[in-house]
Design a protein around this nucleic acid. Structure first.
Lengths: 338, 338
DNA sequence: AAGAAAACTGAAAACGTTTTCAGTTTTTCG
DNA sequence: CGAAAAACTGAAAACGTTTTCAGTTTTCTT
């Protein structure tokens, strides 16, 4: 069942079929209708390989995602997929581990799959313009802000929240309540992680509240894994440090922290307040409900695709799109005990 | 930079280049080396569209997934992707809603993307052999058992758990503890859902324990959505029915149920025991920890791909692979109050 | 009503591979 | 050494589209 069959069936040339398929304007309405009918009746579906070859491009975009385990990223990923297929594009996803080089992985993906564009999802993206130039296709960084990156002044597209500012806001919520001894639950702390950005927000929020940074209150999970977060919190609690609140870098880790606190016999929020960033679905159902800054995950994915497609269409510049979180008040916040 | 350039550069025909690229045996070693060198020096990467068109197939397999919101399915999906790319294949995922026809969607995906094979993930798969024949490519059903399907005797590949038996086992755990008034929290209840299978296991487990089915104890969330599960449980509780345990069709829904019980002032497990099926990561961190039958999600994905690739290679029959769950004891189980 | 412009259409040439098949070497073996 | 077999090679025809460009209609203008 090829375009030829449709042409024969509907009595026009294959060129016309192709035009109908591609929404070219110069096809008479009755002809278009006739062709559409033929396509429908024959259940014709264009061969995308042939189409790509003819067009010399693939209508495929790649998503390089670091940390697929994270429910938040999953949500973004699915939004991306939806939007991509809505635009009649295809998506290929490529998972990478925390030590892999996303740019290199992306570049090889682009070459082998002839991708039109790329989305980098999760994790930071600090490369020099020279390194970026090797990619050869437009790309969008999703879930990443380059505030501290070496690319500060370089134009490249991104859809992100201001990790630094949002972390600042989260911690300020705690200091405003009167908390002074605020622990922070971190994920991976290498350069490739957004943990660092949120940590910076934490530090500055403390400072602006006149609180000195206490290194003993830094809980390092060394990964974004929920199990590691639990273990890290558990061993932190064993140390018996004095604290009244925890800022968790991510919802999933915060959930683990609640459990660890509870297991240790501490009450949330009476003994320890908790705030996180992400807003994954399940965090609405923890006990107590997690108070968190909700990232617009769906929007993030959708917008990332929109931005990328725009860049592809116009062949023009870039676009930085900052999204805002929304505070979802749960039950994990309270004033510190006297 | 095409195959022609490589041919010219290395002084052989494009046919030979193609043969080298595809590891055909009949190329002399020195020629092969020369070609490989040319490819290397020119940084030639084959155009996959052209290759696919020539081959009339794409090394791509499709995954039709119903219910992407479900964390369990996500886990399987990522395992699938990993295994697929390990085998140098590509994966395209296609999300469908609960009312869409997976076979039809799959078929159109196969035609438009010229897929080599398909994996159906999540949801049931009950089609007649005639309907299946329209697909035209081998496929594997993942996370689905055809025990009650119209395909009972038809050979097609699947990697699954026995939903019926596992549900039976879960409910039996409750009856063994002495529970008699056991509610069930269901997802979508149409034919397309596995809810029905697990529900059947629930019914039969009750029966074999000599307990009559009480329709008032059926909580219908009408979807697998966690929010819906919460609402459904909440309104069930408002009715004031007498019960001592809940069997939740899925972990995520069980988490919502715990929350609803807690909100209503009921203690888990003292006032109500709870058991679920799935074993998603976060359910280890509910309070109390969810007791659940853990499905081997990673294995499920990996095996589904293995099975599919085997079928593709051998062009031969099919393979049913039943996996087992493992009971993870949490803290949501107790004997019913006297 | 004629001529020009606009709107539409189709034949044929790409696009970059794979594959077939006929041909040419090289090897083997009596 | 010569013939048959095996091993290798390349020209040319697919594969199913898109695109170009030269036509052919239709519509407009006077």
């Amino acid at each position: 069942m090829t375009i030829k069959d449709v042409a024969k069936y509907s009595g026009v040339s294959i060129t016309t079929i192709s035009r109908v398929l591609n929404n070219h304007p110069d096809v008479r309405e009755d002809v278009r209708a006739k062709v559409l009918k033929a396509i429908e009746e024959l259940h014709y579906v264009p061969n995308s390989s042939a189409r790509d070859l003819g067009k010399m491009q693939t209508d495929t975009i790649g998503v390089v995602v670091r940390g697929v385990g994270n429910p938040f990223l999953n949500s973004v990923l699915h939004a991306i997929e939806k939007e991509v297929s809505r635009a009649d594009y295809s998506m290929v996803m490529h998972q990478i581990g925390s030590n892999e080089d996303e740019l290199a992985e992306g570049a090889s993906l682009v070459r082998s799959k002839r991708l039109k564009g790329l989305i980098f999802l999760g994790g930071r993206f600090d490369y020099t313009p020279e390194q970026i130039a090797t990619l050869g296709v437009p790309f969008v960084c999703c879930t990443y802000t380059n505030t501290f990156g070496s690319l500060k002044k370089t134009a490249y597209s991104s859809v992100y929240i201001d990790d630094y500012a949002e972390a600042f806001r989260a911690v300020k919520t705690l200091t405003d309540l009167g908390h002074k001894k605020i622990a922070v639950l971190l994920g991976t702390t290498d350069d490739r992680s957004i943990s660092e950005l949120r940590f910076k927000g934490y530090c500055d929020a403390l400072e602006s509240a006149g609180i000195a940074l206490d290194k003993d209150l830094i809980i390092e999970a060394k990964s974004f894994n929920i199990d590691d977060a639990f273990k890290a919190t558990e061993s932190f609690l064993k140390k018996g440090k004095d604290f009244t609140a925890i800022f968790s870098i991510a919802d999933a880790m915060g959930i683990a922290a609640i459990k660890a606190l509870h297991t240790a016999g501490l009450n949330v929020p009476d003994d320890c307040s908790l705030i996180a960033i992400d807003g994954i679905q399940v965090s609405k159902y923890t006990i107590p409900t997690l108070t968190t800054l909700v990232q617009p995950s769906k929007q993030m994915g959708t917008r990332a695709v929109e931005v990328l497609l725009n860049v592809l269409k116009d062949e023009c510049g870039s676009c930085q799109l900052k999204l805002e979180t929304a505070l979802r008040e749960g039950g994990t916040l309270a004033k510190p005990k006297a």
